[in-house]
Simulated scan of single mutants.
Amino acid sequence: MKILVFGGTRFFGKKLVERLVRDGHDVTIATRGKTADDFGDTVKRVVMKRESRENLFCLAQEKWDVIYDNICFSPQDALNTVAAFRDKVGKYVYTSSLSVYRMRDRALAEADFDPFHYEIVTGTREDFDYGEGKRLAEAVYFQKADFPVVAVRFPIVLGEDDYTGRLEFHIDHVLAGEEIGMPNQDAEIGFISSDEAADFLNWVGTRSDLVGPVNAASDSVYRLEELMALIETAAGKEALVEENTDDNDDSPFGIEKTYYLDNTKAKKAGFVFQDLRTWLPKLIRFGIVKRN
């Protein structure tokens, strides 16, 4: 397959490209050119600005079997993409987010946010918060595109290569004996690993007929109290968890209500997810060892 990847030089985007190359696809990565990669001559490269309509139309001079879009954050970017790639792509895989859901306190299924009837408001990334930008981009793709689209809604993605440092925040605070702000330790949360996210994107784009919105998350969830107990055990130190702390000590996982994804649709379509309770403890131990 001839495949275009927006992004693809770090975290699960890089892992996706590795899998596509391994499977023998003709892969082009389109990035700002600011992050080096080690793909050598196994991929083609295009330096571009995701926000540039002109750059998108240049890429659309060719036809693509699959396009992966990991870096669209606004309805205007989506509108430009729909216009550029009309009749030029077999399947469009848009990386979306758990953040499209406003509801809390239960497992969230795809029907809990309907992009097919969501009112489209135009604007750039600076005009909306992250969740609204993703909601509006989905709305544009599903209401305006003439090509098949799948919007993959991921929860927080974790891995040894996570540049965001969200899990490391908790490890570092426990090791340093610093407070961690969590408003509700009884809230349940889900995740997906960067390897599993890459595996899912590869599968949904090249091996599956699935289209529309789809949740992708590891099986099982953790109560935040359980998650902190895992870190305490691995670190050999007690966590200092408080409901209210200074802003710089607020947990990146500090949700007020249960907030995780129901992955039933993807499982029924044939994808087998890992169990969170198998891989996350290993990742926590890796993080502790890395800091000792």
Rank of each mutant, 00 (worst) to 15 (best):
L4C: 08
F6D: 02
K15D: 09
L16V: 11
V17T: 13
V17I: 13
R19T: 06
L20I: 10
D23F: 08
G24K: 07
T28C: 10
T31E: 04
T31G: 10
T31L: 04
A36F: 05
D38F: 09
F39W: 01
D41E: 09
V43L: 11
R45A: 05
V46T: 11
S52G: 09
S52R: 05
E54S: 09
N55K: 04
L56D: 02
Q61P: 02
Q61C: 03
Q61R: 15
K63D: 10
D65Y: 11
D65W: 10
N70Q: 14
N70F: 11
S74Y: 08
Q76I: 11
L79T: 08
V82R: 06
A84R: 06
F85Q: 00
R86Y: 13
K88W: 11
Y92G: 03
V93C: 10
S97V: 01
R102Q: 09
R106I: 01
R106P: 00
R106F: 03
L108E: 03
D112M: 03
F113V: 09
P115R: 07
F116K: 13
H117N: 15
Y118W: 12
E119A: 14
E119V: 13
T122G: 12
G123K: 03
F128H: 06
G131W: 05
G131K: 09
G131A: 11
L136Y: 07
L136P: 08
A137F: 11
A137P: 04
E138K: 01
E138T: 04
E138N: 06
A139P: 01
Y141T: 03
F142K: 01
P148E: 05
V150P: 00
A151E: 05
R153F: 05
R153M: 02
F154S: 01
I156C: 07
V157L: 14
L158K: 00
D162W: 13
Y163C: 06
Y163N: 08
G165Q: 06
L167D: 05
E168N: 08
E168W: 14
I171N: 02
I171S: 00
V174A: 08
V174N: 10
L175C: 07
L175A: 09
G177K: 11
E179G: 01
E179N: 14
I180A: 07
M182R: 02
P183G: 07
P183V: 14
D186R: 09
A187M: 12
E188Y: 15
E188K: 15
I189N: 00
S193R: 12
D199G: 03
L201I: 02
N202S: 06
R207D: 01
V211N: 03
P213F: 02
A217E: 00
D219E: 12
S220K: 11
S220Q: 15
L227G: 10
M228T: 09
A229F: 09
I231M: 07
A239T: 10
A239W: 15
E242M: 14
E243G: 15
N248W: 14
D249K: 15
D249Q: 14
G254W: 13
I255G: 01
K257A: 15
L261V: 01
T264F: 10
K265R: 15
K265W: 07
A266K: 06
K268P: 00
A269C: 06
A269T: 12
F273R: 10
F273Q: 01
Q274D: 14
R277N: 13
L280T: 00
L283W: 07
R285F: 04
R285D: 10
G287Q: 05
V289F: 08
K290S: 13
K290F: 06
R291H: 11
